[in-house]
Design a protein around this nucleic acid. Structure first.
Lengths: 205, 205
DNA sequence: TAAGAATACCCCCAAAAAGGGGTTTTTCAA
DNA sequence: TTGAAAAACCCCTTTTTGGGGGTATTCTTA
């Protein structure tokens, strides 16, 4: 049986080096390429036709969530394992929705990372322990947003600016700013448009 | 019978002067106050308790659409006639949804403006000729957006930035900019949040 | 009672959107 | 065939947002 061809996509070069090292003496996995951006990733895919991609979610030029969707739509046979420092429910969920086979946090055990790649290649899915726990907790408890966050989200959906929201909620604009940025992270939305869409589609408001 | 108490709300002072003049010798209408901003409008309402408000849609500090909703929720008995230079279907529609009794464009005939105030005071609704025509045309023909605009709106809802959209549509960023601003006007949305919401709620995409 | 959420605040700065003006070319229907 | 609508483009400016760091109180619950 041939080795699993793995493409590593991450802009954090040190981490990439570590990952390459990790698979150096692997009997089952061979790192056939690395990419440091979404753009490089796309061309690497065409050149190398990897079996599995270890895909960072925070690329400088692209959202891993979108990139994952794009790759899966063009190459459904390629398995994708998300690599991220976020352990946010909504992000994991969206990645899985977009076709990812696995999700590991960057500080996961090396064994977990190896495992995720191998399982992905074998059409199985894998979540590192931390994420697995998170998903179990959340699936029981689907209230991800705090009361304050919901309040804020409602006002964003109603089209108010941070300034207006601040007045309505009797808070400082900076506070609203922080909350808003937090909402983007929590929901894995890259901007207001997605935020509003998620709020409406998933009836969070 | 007492005269109709009219509050004029518009930041365009010359226009306000013209309107005051228009009602100067009216036997039925008396201008009891003017306001040049949303803020002034709110306090004028409390002080004067007008019967009818001639409300400009483009105030410096507020959207007439929102302000209308706000006033109607607090003072359902006050009639509102929208005064605007826009003759966009969606804007008129939203104003009427928000409780406006009439809608006149700023270059309407003076008689039409007088008429609208009187009819509003008598619990009737009134649209100036131009708007009336527009509404009749549109109600037959519910396709408000051109193909290109729909395409763009879809991409906005999907969370892409102007830059990304430009690439996808093989157009310049400036073009996307213009289209986008046009969409805001056409749909009477004040920002992306509202745009996305309308797109989803009215299933324009 | 101590860790962990949640709440509220702060800074800097860059990117994106919005508001305001425009122009030119193509397309299509009256 | 001509005139309106649609499509594409351009410039300038301000406002809003997003990205990246934080910190200091509460409140809550294991």
């Amino acid at each position: 049986m041939e080795k699993i061809k793995l493409l590593i996509v991450d802009d954090h070069r040190i981490l990439v080096a570590g990952l390459k090292k990790l698979f150096e003496n692997s009997a089952t996995v061979q790192v056939t390429g690395v990419a440091f951006s979404g753009k490089e990733c796309r061309s690497a895919i065409i050149k190398e036709l990897p079996d599995v991609i270890l895909l960072d979610i925070n690329l400088p030029d692209a959202s891993g969530i979108d990139l994952c969707k794009e790759i899966k739509s063009q190459h459904p046979e390629i398995k994708i394992v998300a690599l991220s420092s976020f352990n946010e429910y909504a992000i994991v969920r969206r990645m899985l929705e977009n076709g990812a086979s696995g999700y590991v946090v960057k500080n996961a055990m090396p064994e977990e990372i190896k495992m995720s790649v191998e399982m992905a290649a074998n059409n199985a899915s894998f979540l590192c322990e931390e994420i697995d726990l998170l998903m179990r907790k959340r699936s029981k408890n689907p209230i991800w947003l705090t009361p304050r966050e919901k309040e804020l989200l409602k006002l964003i959906v109603d089209g108010f600016t941070n300034h207006e929201i601040a007045e309505k909620m009797f808070l400082g604009v900076e506070t609203i700013n922080s909350y808003r940025k937090n909402l983007l992270i929590k929901l894995g939305a890259k901007n207001t448009a997605i935020l509003v869409r998620m709020a409406l589609e998933e009836k969070l408001v």
